[in-house]
């Protein structure tokens, strides 16, 4: 099938502001948006800048605004979009070129929530054991691939880029509710600041945008509850 792909282009070396360019490509209905972008870059216009890596929806590098919604270009089929596909870079980040945005502020926020296991006790000979129930407590938030689709779909983040954003909260949730972790109180304090979880207005754009189907809003609400009750609902060792 033939589709028209409208792409928001911007080259900071020559353009004053972004503009739209249209390309016509021949694709299979089961092709993905990234396949159409490859066709354009490889055979029509080599100057198109697009970022992707694994092409299988797990590296999180090709999130972009496709037909008005944040999606992964490697996980969105052409047949689900119709004859005209519009592609733009993620909103709220500085555009480096075309569809490539500067993700550094995003990763800075990710690092700010201490996204790693903190446990100062001597590790046992084999591993720090955990029951299946304890593991299930944070299963949903382990699925995050840091693609930024949720954060850049969030009106609270658009309004104020200091907001830590849904992705960083999801990452914090993954460790706060891990029974082996000892720094959950510190993480909660970080998210209790005025750039933290209280900025969420339950708009649900994050949930709709997540390509991994994480219930982002639930994770944020659980962090807020932990802050209100001062407990993460896990029996703490003395």
């Amino acid at each position: 099938m033939e589709v028209r792909v409208r792409i928001q282009r911007y080259n900071p070396e020559v353009d004053e502001k972004p503009h739209w360019e249209e390309y016509t490509v021949e694709v299979e209905p089961t092709d993905r948006v990234i396949d159409a972008l490859h066709q354009i870059k490889w055979f029509q216009d080599g100057t198109l800048a697009v970022r992707r890596s694994c092409l299988h929806g797990i590296c999180g590098s090709d999130a972009m605004l496709i037909n008005g919604r944040n999606r992964l270009a490697c996980k969105t089929l052409v047949r689900d979009l119709g004859k005209v596909i519009t592609v733009a870079p993620l909103r709220g980040f500085r555009v480096i070129k075309d569809l490539v945005v500067d993700m550094e502020p995003f990763f800075r926020k990710y690092r700010s929530v201490m996204p790693y296991l903190v446990n100062d006790e001597r590790p046992p000979a084999r591993e720090r054991l955990q029951s299946p129930e304890e593991r299930a407590r944070f299963d949903d938030t382990t699925k995050c691939i840091l693609c930024a689709a949720c954060t850049t779909a969030c009106p609270s983040f658009w309004a104020d880029s200091r907001y830590v954003g849904p992705a960083a909260i999801v990452q914090a949730h993954r460790f706060i509710f891990d029974s082996r972790d000892q720094a959950w109180r510190e993480r909660l304090q970080i998210l209790n600041e005025n750039t933290g979880v209280w900025r969420c207005r339950n708009i649900f754009n994050c949930v709709e945008a997540c390509p991994r189907d994480i219930n982002v809003n639930k994770a944020i609400a659980e962090v807020r509850q932990a802050l209100i009750t001062g407990s993460r609902g896990i029996e703490e060792p003395e």
């Binding site: 008005g68 909103r91 709220g92 980040f93 500085r94 658009w158 880029s161 649900f204 754009n205 709709e208």
Partner: peptide
């Protein structure tokens, strides 16, 4: 980098 009101209104979010 900050999206405008027009950007907000044109984003196809869900019911929320």
């Amino acid at each position: 980098t900050a999206p405008s009101l027009r950007d907000t209104l044109s984003y196809r979010g869900g019911v929320g």
